[in-house]
């Protein structure tokens, strides 16, 4: 996004919005170079330092957001920006159901809504590469992808039902000081549909994509890939207006270079 547009967007938010509606806790992730799931040695990705929300955005956070920005309320949101499942369980524009914990991650929000939420805080959604980079840490190490315990924990969550209503902070604090990257909900990323599958076109999936029968079997040789495959598969099934029960988000921010 060019910076001119960014300034306009931020100022638009600030113009109508003063109070801070979300927890400010962010943790710094020191950048580095790593090879993502879909890559080979030559496609190593370099990440700059960035900061990331310590917790996913909660129901309470999101309620404040829709109070400030009525255009993102359930009944007022533009269908182009959020499908029929947007805030699906909410009883009205300004109340989520009692059975939802205030501190549980907000879900059933579209990518457009998540993106706007972050922009209105002067933040942005993390990129896939940033998210995956931060999420390959376990409690002790920055890159735990080769550890069996780390992978088993993730796979276990993928099989555990109805974790979306667990409270933030209920899983582990990772090497960077960030909670809940694994174990609560899936999370939106800025460029969620840029890898393997394009959200628009189904035409390019047959030979390049790793998501279907033949090719999935070739590359996926170890446990680490299987866990990550499920995330990429999930992202690939999304479109930007989809609002899904097990999908939330958190924001990230650049760290100004000195």
């Amino acid at each position: 996004m060019d910076s001119f547009l960014k300034i306009i967007l931020i100022s638009l938010c600030i113009a109508i919005f003063q109070p801070v509606f979300a927890q400010d806790d962010m943790a710094m992730v020191r950048g580095g170079t790593y090879i993502p799931l879909y890559g080979v040695d030559s496609t190593a990705v370099t990440i700059d330092d960035f900061s990331m929300d310590v917790y996913p955005v909660t129901n309470a956070d999101y309620l404040e957001f829709v109070q400030e920005f009525p255009q993102w309320q359930k009944s007022k949101v533009k269908p182009l920006f959020a499908d029929g499942s947007y805030l699906n369980a909410w009883e009205s524009d300004l109340s989520y159901p009692n059975r939802f914990s205030a501190d549980a991650p907000v879900t059933n929000v579209s990518w457009f809504a998540a993106k706007k939420y972050c922009e209105c805080q002067g933040k942005r959604l993390p990129t896939i590469d940033e998210w995956e980079f931060a999420a390959m840490a376990d409690e002790k190490t920055a890159d735990a992808r080769k550890k069996e315990s780390y992978n088993q924990k993730i796979l276990d969550w993928y099989e555990a039902p109805k974790t979306f209503n667990n409270e933030i902070g209920s899983t582990f604090k990772n090497y960077w000081g960030i909670y809940d990257l694994h174990g609560l909900v899936w999370e939106w990323t800025m460029d969620f549909n840029s890898v393997l599958i394009s959200g628009e076109s189904r035409k390019d999936v047959d030979k390049d994509s790793n998501l279907f029968c033949g090719s999935a079997a070739v590359g996926a040789s170890d446990l680490m890939n299987y866990a990550a495959f499920m995330r990429y598969a999930f992202r690939g099934s999304m479109k930007a207006n989809y609002s899904v029960k097990n999908l939330g988000f958190r924001c990230a921010k650049d760290i100004p270079k000195i």
């Binding site: 039902p161 599958i197 189904r202 998501l211």
Partner: peptide, 24 residues
């Protein structure tokens, strides 16, 4: 939690339907 699709061996077509049925 997960997206799924269906590949029917009775289908004549790419992916046996898998490509067209990938559903969130």
């Amino acid at each position: 939690k997960l997206p799924h699709n269906i590949d029917l061996h009775a289908v004549t077509g790419p992916g046996g339907g898998a490509e067209s049925s990938f559903v969130a």
